[in-house]
Computed example of a mutant assay.
Amino acid sequence: MIRGIRGATTVLENEKDSIIDNTKILIQEMAKANHIVAEDIASVLISVTSDIDATFPASALRLIDGWMYVPVMCTKEIEVPGSLEKCIRVMMTANTKIGQKEIIHVYHHEAKKLRPDLTKKKD
């Protein structure tokens, strides 16, 4: 079964190393939390808010051992007044036997505000 796994993080500055480091940490935690390996992944879509343009966060995947062939693409989020700034969002689609309600979505830093219902411990 293919499932979507959500994740998001924020950065303090529009700076290449920060964007890459935060994206890599997020992706690795998403995969680990859901027992996903690169071979399980169908694709990864990464979106950024308009205030992030110092680098492509997708390049962080190429720094993860074994992820060379994972299809990844970056795009811009729509600009909504009052929305979270300096945010990187990830949608990973992967083959897994984990049920939809058991998927662990990962939110770091200020991005925890996006889905507080998913950042609480599961019963």
Rank of each mutant, 00 (worst) to 15 (best):
Met1Glu: 00
Met1Cys: 02
Met1Gln: 09
Ile2Asn: 02
Arg3Leu: 10
Gly4Asn: 09
Gly4Leu: 13
Arg6Leu: 10
Arg6Ser: 14
Gly7Lys: 10
Thr9Leu: 01
Thr9Arg: 01
Thr10Lys: 01
Thr10His: 03
Leu12Glu: 09
Glu13Cys: 08
Glu13Lys: 13
Asn14Leu: 00
Lys16Asn: 01
Asp17Gln: 08
Ile19Gly: 00
Asn22Cys: 13
Thr23Gly: 01
Thr23Asn: 01
Ile25Gly: 11
Ile25Lys: 14
Leu26Gly: 03
Glu29Trp: 00
Ala31Leu: 08
Ala31Thr: 15
Ile36Asn: 02
Ile36Val: 13
Ile36Arg: 03
Val37Pro: 14
Ala38Lys: 13
Ala38Tyr: 05
Ala38Met: 11
Asp40Asn: 15
Asp40Arg: 10
Asp40His: 13
Ile41Gly: 10
Ile41Leu: 08
Ser43Ala: 15
Ser43Tyr: 14
Leu45Pro: 04
Ile46Gln: 05
Val48Leu: 06
Thr49Pro: 03
Thr49Met: 01
Asp51Lys: 06
Asp51Ser: 01
Asp51Tyr: 04
Ile52Ser: 00
Ala54Arg: 02
Thr55Leu: 09
Pro57Trp: 02
Ala58His: 00
Ala58Met: 05
Ser59Tyr: 06
Ala60Glu: 01
Ala60His: 04
Leu63Trp: 13
Leu63Asp: 05
Leu63His: 14
Ile64Val: 09
Asp65Gln: 15
Asp65Asn: 14
Asp65Leu: 11
Met68Arg: 08
Met68Asp: 10
Met68Ser: 08
Val72Thr: 12
Thr75Val: 08
Thr75Arg: 05
Lys76His: 11
Glu77Lys: 11
Ile78Trp: 00
Val80Asp: 03
Pro81Gly: 04
Gly82Ser: 00
Ser83Val: 09
Ser83Gly: 09
Ser83Trp: 12
Leu84Ala: 04
Leu84Cys: 12
Leu84Pro: 04
Ile88Asn: 00
Arg89Leu: 07
Met91Arg: 15
Met92Ile: 05
Met92Glu: 01
Ala94Gln: 03
Asn95Lys: 13
Thr96Cys: 15
Lys97Asn: 03
Lys97Ile: 07
Ile98Val: 14
Ile98Lys: 05
Gly99Tyr: 01
Gln100Asn: 13
Ile103Tyr: 01
Ile103Trp: 00
Ile103Pro: 03
Ile104Thr: 08
His105Trp: 08
Tyr107Met: 12
His108Asp: 07
Glu110Arg: 12
Glu110Trp: 05
Lys113Asp: 09
Lys113Tyr: 03
Leu114Thr: 13
Arg115Cys: 10
Arg115Asp: 02
Pro116Asn: 14
Pro116Glu: 05
Asp117Gly: 05
Asp117Lys: 12
Leu118Trp: 11
Leu118Asp: 15
Thr119Ala: 00
Lys121Asp: 04
Lys122Phe: 05
Lys122His: 08
Lys122Thr: 06
Asp123Val: 11
